[in-house]
């Protein structure tokens, strides 16, 4: 029995950045802020985790950067194409409560994870400040959407091509100096989360980060995603993916993210070569 998950909408947002809506009723109907899904494109595919970015009816949205073999292959799919497996929602939902003033920070493709959290925080009665940052204007995603959800939105780019010149951490630091912020979420690349959460530490502000280690099953069975939090080993897939930022061993996380760098390169080169040969006919194939 093959159950396939249909791509309902496939949009290129920026260079190598894509927004996909995938029909997966069991995921969409139960998804909460902070959770992720795991997809497998085909019989030979690997299982990759992606943050659930939004939900509409029976469809879920994911936003990803096509950097590895699987994400590049995913990016060749068009509306109407199918994905073999989508499992989820996985992980514990965000700790949503009425904190007072909350700040939701997204970096790069990590911005994908911010709207659901901002929305649920808003619904819980918080004053929600959004900070989204990217390397440059063309890589900045979901600005309008976040502006619509948040009470205040700050935009930064590393090169100053849009919003403030600099990092999300700079804005966060300034805000922390100006007023009371009760809770912070940071979602982005590991290094960005490390640096940005360092900003909140001196203020003793509760800060959550959404960790993105390598996973296989995503249900607590393999331990591939183990991370050290407060000196204890935790499984990001079932104990997280969100953890207290100030307890996370980011150096170990980044080290473990590099395990398969060599294999990933081989896989990608092989795929590029294959695409090249098949691409001569002019069509992409999904």
């Amino acid at each position: 029995m093959k159950r396939l998950y249909r791509v309902e909408l496939a949009i290129k947002l920026a260079d190598r950045v894509y927004e996909y809506w995938i029909r997966a009723p069991q995921v969409a109907q139960h998804a909460r802020a902070g959770q992720f899904l795991i997809l497998r494109l085909h019989e030979r595919g690997e299982r990759i985790p992606l943050t659930i970015s939004a939900v509409r009816g029976d469809a879920v949205r994911v936003i990803f950067m096509a950097v590895g073999k699987t994400t590049q292959e995913l990016a060749t799919l068009r509306a109407g194409d199918s994905i073999m497996d989508v499992a989820g929602p996985l992980g514990r939902p965000s700790e949503i409560a009425r904190y007072g003033t909350c700040c939701v920070v997204g970096g790069g493709v990590g911005i994908a994870g911010t709207p659901l959290i901002a929305e649920e925080l808003k619904r819980a009665g918080n004053h929600v400040i959004g900070i989204i940052g990217a390397r440059s204007a063309d890589l900045l995603v979901l600005e309008d959407e976040m502006r619509g959800i948040c009470d205040e939105l700050y935009v930064t780019t590393d090169d100053g091509s849009r919003g403030a010149h600099g990092f999300a951490a700079d804005v966060l630091k300034r805000l922390l100096g100006e007023r009371v912020i009760d809770c912070v979420w940071i979602i982005g690349p590991a290094i960005m989360m490390k640096i940005t959460s360092g900003v909140t530490a001196p203020y003793g502000v509760k800060t959550y980060v959404s960790l993105n280690p390598i996973m296989v099953d995503g249900t607590g069975m393999c331990g591939s995603c183990r991370v050290t939090v407060g000196g204890e080993t935790k499984f990001a897939c079932v104990d997280g993916p969100e953890f207290d930022a100030h307890q996370v061993d980011f150096v170990e996380l980044m080290q473990r993210q590099r395990i398969y760098t060599g294999q990933e390169k081989i896989s990608l080169e092989r795929y590029a070569e294959h695409q090249c040969r098949c691409g001569e006919g002019g069509g992409s194939h999904g």
Binding site: M1, R3, Q26, V27, H30, Q35, D85, V86, A87, G88, P89, L90, T219
Partner: peptide, 12 residues
């Protein structure tokens, strides 16, 4: 058989 269904998450 419902694959890709994590009971407690995909099934309330």
């Amino acid at each position: 058989l419902k694959k890709n269904h994590l009971a407690g998450r995909s099934v309330s």
